[in-house]
Write a protein that binds this DNA or RNA. Sequence first.
DNA 1: TATCAGATAATTGTCAACAATCAGCACGAG
DNA 2: CTCGTGCTGATTGTTGACAATTATCTGATA
Lengths: 237, 237
Amino acid sequence: MTALKMVSAVAKRSLDRAAADALRQAIVSGEVLPGTRLTEMEIAAQFELSRGTIRAALQRLMGEGLIVQRPYAGWEVVTLNSHDVWELYTLRASLEGLAARLAARHPDRRARMEIAFDVLKAAAASGDGREITEADLSLHKTIVSLAGHQRLASQYEVVGQQVRMFMASSNAILPRSAMLIENHIPLVTAVAEGDPDLAERCASAHSTSSGEILMRHLEAQKHTHAEASEPPKSGSR
Amino acid sequence: MTALKMVSAVAKRSLDRAAADALRQAIVSGEVLPGTRLTEMEIAAQFELSRGTIRAALQRLMGEGLIVQRPYAGWEVVTLNSHDVWELYTLRASLEGLAARLAARHPDRRARMEIAFDVLKAAAASGDGREITEADLSLHKTIVSLAGHQRLASQYEVVGQQVRMFMASSNAILPRSAMLIENHIPLVTAVAEGDPDLAERCASAHSTSSGEILMRHLEAQKHTHAEASEPPKSGSR
DNA sequence: TATCAGATAATTGTCAACAATCAGCACGAG
DNA sequence: CTCGTGCTGATTGTTGACAATTATCTGATA
């Protein structure tokens, strides 16, 4: 019995769901890179499951925007061009703005923001890149959680996965720890103090600023490695 | 050969995709009401397809938030309570705000907004409820299209489907035609004139206002029909 | 009359096999 | 050398059957 089947049984989760979770994790972590070609037979053999079960898992990831289907030619992990990155951070800015606005009205906001920010400060002090990234993510998820908005949380998760995939596969660099803490202070304060309008503006500005860093990084990478595989830019519909 | 199979073959679309499309249309139009219980065997018999194909279709609709799975007890068309409706219009306000902001920068915005608004005015003059609804939707889709943002368009579509399902099944009433046109003027003007900040504020205000009408309608229905099936309100996570 | 336990039927979860589609490659002709 | 056509193998799409899970119902007991 494979590990996946054990995990699936323990968590009372279907095998196709467990397979989707494992594949998602591999993609988001950069273990499976953008542009990688996947076939149902190959994945089924790897997981020791039937093609039908794997097919359901792949369809779920397609719904989350992590893979695309090449009809009769396999599936492919999405490659994100600069327009995609722009879409991700503009959408995330909008979602985080809404989340911050709602979070700023939650009775528990002060306590929970302090906890999350303390964790981020501790991570920044440790200097461990992985710990910093997790703490940063956790802070933003706290805001989304405080919003009490399931649909927002779902969409935020989908966008966040694609952002993490991009960062994991593109050698995106972390900002300096001191700068990281400083950049979060306006947002944390606005939410904790309960100012919805300010919280929304800070959240949007924060995401937009992070996104611009990503865009500059992408542009810089273009000049150091010619990306022949980059698809043509999507225009307006 | 069923009609679905013919449509599927002509459109070069898989059967599970075609089945999902047909089910989605039935749900969104109110033909299949919230709370309806669906089973894989029953739907498979109705469409003359295998359970596996129907299962894939149902999983797709689950991903779109239109149905939920009751493990070993069938699937169920979602019922939307007041918290769900609040989630829908706040998320839509956020998405439309982003869309309007971006649309306000598109070179073709003036021409396309004029066309869409003219269609809405003609529909309002006709007094045909269905035509008005379609023209209203089309105007908002024009704004989203002008944004040139695929991920926003996808999420907007998912949210829009749930809103339409709610409206179709709850006897939501349309605003008076004159009021409808008047309510759209600020948004249309801000986008057409190319003022991103104003467009964003107008779009958010417009969606929020529409959402509040929905909420009031829901509250009014509560007093006329006791909704015993309404699930408990979701709290913050 | 209410609750608990056991059994059955209803429903989903998974699989292997076959059907359908087409990507890619090879060969021939211009 | 390039382009077009045909064929094959690779891959997905779909199916029916069986396994697994559990919801529901019935009977017995307190």
